[in-house]
Simulated assay, not measured.
Amino acid sequence: MKILGQNIEWSRSALLDQALTHRSVGKKNNERLEFLGDSILSLVISNLLYQKYSNLTEGELSRLRSQLVKGKTLAEVARHYQLGPSIKLGQGEIKSGGVNKSSVLADAVEAIFGAVLLDQGYEVAKRFIEQVMTPWLDKVNPSVIKKDAKSQLQEMLQQQGLELPVYQLLEEIETDQMTQFKVLCHVQTLDLSIESKGSSIKKAEQSAANKMIEALELQ
């Protein structure tokens, strides 16, 4: 069976069916598979970037990865492979145009990655993701990621005439192994807040800014 442009011989085709089932349909939906797919996608893309760009720093690799795994990119992947009509939606979601929503499309792509991992194992899932994502990996431009996420978010908001984001330290979490910081990024004019964690306040703020950028791009 062909999915996202690749042929997969499914052992458990029910996994693909679940991956294409939006939460608006019922309890047996693609949210858990989406969680799994998000994790393996990040790992596979990280490895590809590490091998391809030996001259980039850790921060630059992270920003480049975020460009490839963000919802906007995954929605482009879904549209390229005409995935939308295959996604099962509840009546309310259908009426609200869910088949065209970037968030719905991106979630389905991640869920498919998770389903392939469960059905075929890591090596097949790794090759599958590499084949699906290679066109976007080839198009990505390392020169555009020299600015960090906070700078990118600030520019994005300024271009729209919106107030700049405010960052607030919410919590310092200490364990035996490490200390983590939880930070809130808030855009007042949009009434939008996003939390994120990092091993330092700076990293937590950058992570929160990156999530805010993705949220704005999906609106």
Rank of each mutant, 00 (worst) to 15 (best):
L49P: 02
Q159M: 12
E205G: 04
V109A: 04
K202Y: 13
R79E: 14
G90T: 13
D119V: 12
E9H: 11
S102V: 02
T21A: 04
T21V: 07
T179D: 00
G198V: 07
L15M: 05
P142V: 11
I173L: 06
M178V: 12
E93Q: 15
K95D: 09
E163R: 14
F35W: 08
S42K: 12
S42Q: 12
G5M: 03
Q206G: 08
D148W: 00
Q51W: 09
F35T: 10
A75I: 01
I87D: 07
Y122R: 13
K202S: 15
P135M: 04
F113A: 10
N141A: 03
D176K: 07
K147T: 06
D176V: 05
A75S: 14
P165A: 03
K70E: 15
E110C: 12
E130P: 03
K197T: 15
A106L: 11
S86K: 13
A14Y: 07
I45E: 00
E155S: 14
E155A: 13
I40L: 14
E76Q: 14
G92W: 08
A106F: 10
L83C: 10
Q152M: 13
L218R: 01
S199M: 14
A208G: 03
A106H: 11
V109T: 03
V116F: 01
E58F: 08
S11Q: 14
V132E: 05
K203Q: 14
Q219I: 08
K95G: 00
T175Q: 07
Q6R: 15
E195M: 13
T189R: 08
R127C: 08
P142Y: 12
E9Y: 10
E9D: 15
I194C: 03
K126S: 11
C185V: 05
Y81T: 02
R127M: 14
K2D: 10
S62V: 04
Q18C: 10
G97Y: 05
M178Y: 06
G161H: 05
K146G: 11
L192E: 06
I129V: 10
S11P: 00
S96C: 04
G121M: 07
L4C: 06
S207G: 03
K126A: 07
G37M: 08
V77T: 05
T57R: 05
R63L: 14
P85Q: 09
E9A: 10
M212T: 06
K182T: 01
L20E: 04
S96P: 00
E172A: 02
L105Y: 07
Q159N: 15
L170I: 08
S54E: 13
L64Y: 05
S193M: 09
V183W: 00
L105P: 10
V25I: 09
T134Y: 08
L192G: 00
L74W: 00
K203W: 07
Q206F: 03
S24R: 07
G121P: 05
L170K: 13
D107T: 11
E31V: 13
I94C: 04
K147E: 13
S39G: 01
L162V: 09
A208R: 05
L56Y: 02
L16V: 11
L20P: 00
E171T: 07
E123R: 11
Q120W: 09
K28L: 12
L192T: 08
K2F: 10
V109N: 01
S42M: 07
S24A: 07
F128M: 09
I194D: 01
D107A: 12
I45C: 01
L169D: 08
L157Y: 05
T21W: 03
K126I: 02
L49Y: 03
